[in-house]
Simulated scan of single mutants.
Amino acid sequence: MSEYQEFLSERDKIDFLLQKGFRIEKVTENLSGAFVVFKHTENKRSATLHIKTANARKYFSNLLIQS
């Protein structure tokens, strides 16, 4: 998969979780990317995404700054 396709896939996963009512709770960066923990606002469920591409990391960073 090309890096651009991988970015689109990661961006879609982030957008899907945000549309379902999840909010970014915690970000852990390391050499292999970032682990982003999402927590649902109502029922306290959580989901974790491993974000590998630099563009997707910039994308969720901008979302954090906007909120």
Score class of each variant (00 low, 15 high):
Leu49His: 04
Glu29Ile: 09
Leu49Phe: 09
Ser2Lys: 15
Leu8Ser: 14
Ile51Leu: 08
Glu25Lys: 07
Lys13Arg: 05
Ile65Gln: 12
Tyr4Met: 15
Tyr4His: 13
Phe38Gln: 10
Glu6Ala: 15
Glu42Val: 09
Leu49Asn: 03
Asp12Gly: 12
Ser46Phe: 12
Asn55Pro: 00
Ser67Arg: 07
Glu29Asn: 13
Gly33Arg: 03
His50Ser: 04
Glu42Trp: 06
Arg45Ser: 06
Glu6Ile: 15
Thr48Gln: 14
Glu10Gly: 02
Gln66Ile: 11
Asn62Ile: 00
Ile51Met: 01
His40Asn: 11
Leu49Thr: 10
Glu25Asn: 10
Glu42Leu: 10
Ser32Phe: 06
Ser2Met: 14
Ser46Gln: 12
Glu3Asp: 14
Asn62Pro: 00
Val36Gly: 03
Arg57Lys: 06
Leu63Arg: 04
Ser67Lys: 07
Lys20His: 15
Ser67Val: 06
Ser67Asp: 07
Thr41Phe: 04
Met1Arg: 11
Ile51Lys: 00
Val36Trp: 05
Phe16Gln: 05
His40Phe: 08
Tyr4Lys: 14
Val37Phe: 12
Asn55Tyr: 02
Ser61Asp: 02
Ala34Asn: 00
Gly33Ile: 03
Phe16Arg: 11
Leu31Ser: 13
Glu42Arg: 13
Arg11Val: 08
Lys52Asp: 03
Ala47Gln: 08
Thr28Ala: 11
Tyr4Trp: 14
Ser46Tyr: 11
Tyr59Leu: 03
Ala56Asn: 01
Gln19Met: 12
Glu3Ile: 14
Asn43Val: 12
Lys58Tyr: 06
Ser61Thr: 03
Lys44Ile: 10
Leu8Asp: 14
Val36Ala: 06
Ala54Thr: 07
Phe22Cys: 09
Ser67Pro: 02
Leu49Asp: 04
Leu18Gln: 08
Lys13Thr: 01
Gly21Cys: 09
Asp15Cys: 02
Val37Cys: 12
Phe22Tyr: 14
Leu8Asn: 15
Ala34Ser: 08
Tyr4Val: 13
Phe35Thr: 00
Glu3Leu: 14
Phe60Val: 02
Ser67Tyr: 07
Phe16Trp: 05
Asn43Phe: 15
Asp12Ala: 15
Tyr59Phe: 06
Glu29Trp: 10
Val37Asp: 04
